[in-house]
Design a protein around this nucleic acid. Structure first.
Lengths: 146, 146
DNA sequence: ACACATATATAGCTGCGCTATGTATAATTG
DNA sequence: CAATTATACATAGCGCAGCTATATATGTGT
């Protein structure tokens, strides 16, 4: 069966977006999805400059500034001055940030378990491979227009 | 390997959210992601009442009202009075709506091709199966708290 | 020193998405 | 059949993500 890329990408986007809505409502604490997405990026990739974070999170630089400000206000990230360049600030997840992220992950898993627990192991493996594939697409490239 | 559901769900959410950001910027026309998500839901599932749309889209009813208003203003959906119940309005995608959706899908595919075209067929099939799995999770249940 | 490039911050806007509440139509019940 | 309650959607008003345009501060090069 020839995979129709148009259809696949459209569906992938639509279902991804709906899934983020599910998650947002399920683990619906006070924090917004963007906060967790940003924290996830920082946690999985490690400390980085603000501009880099913006690229990886696929948001504009001002948006990243705001998100980091929010995260910093909660004590979940720290900004450190770069030794060699006074303009850059390196963002780093704090221990509290890792804990908050773990807590959210746990809440999310608990809330979404009813939806996913009935899946056979093979489906979970499919999802896992899909996550890996998508992450590589999202992370590795320098952006669509590069 | 025992799949860690906590990790998987957290990663799935994070990468899904990032993917929606990629798509939003890639096909970055004037319309917002929510518009396309809503239109996708309507198109794939068919005409439905507003409340149903809210549930399937995983948004609140007032949010659905607003989105439908936006879509109606662009002539992409129509509201029809229900014969048996004067309270309900049935939402239906117009021909123009289908065309707009197809156009967006095309733009999205074009923009994301550089990221996905290099994938082997097996990966595309994995993504396709993952889309199916996720869609069933998102569609079938009546909501987390039901 | 001066011009230009780069990294982040600020200002101001649009629109999503929410809760709380209002309004109109059904359904129910004494 | 009138009064109550439930349902479907609309309205009001808020918070915040995310954007563009622009400012500020620092670095680089001639």
């Amino acid at each position: 069966m020839t995979t129709d890329l148009h259809q696949l990408l459209g569906d992938l986007f639509a279902v991804s977006h709906r899934l983020t809505r599910v998650a947002a409502r399920a683990a619906g604490g006070k924090e917004s999805p963007a906060v967790w997405r940003t924290l996830s990026v920082l946690s999985s990739t490690g400390p980085m400059r603000l501009g880099e974070l913006a690229e990886l999170s696929r948001v504009s630089q001002p948006t990243a500034t705001n998100l980091v400000a929010t995260l910093a206000a909660r004590g979940w990230v720290e900004r450190q001055a770069d030794a060699g360049d006074a303009r850059v600030s390196v963002i780093q997840v704090t221990v509290a940030g890792e804990e908050a992220l773990a807590g959210w992950r746990s809440a999310l898993a608990t809330a979404m378990l009813p939806l996913f627990s009935s899946l056979p192991e093979s489906d979970l493996e499919t999802l896992e491979r899909a996550v890996t594939i998508m992450r590589e697409r999202v992370v590795n490239e320098r952006g669509i227009t590069s």
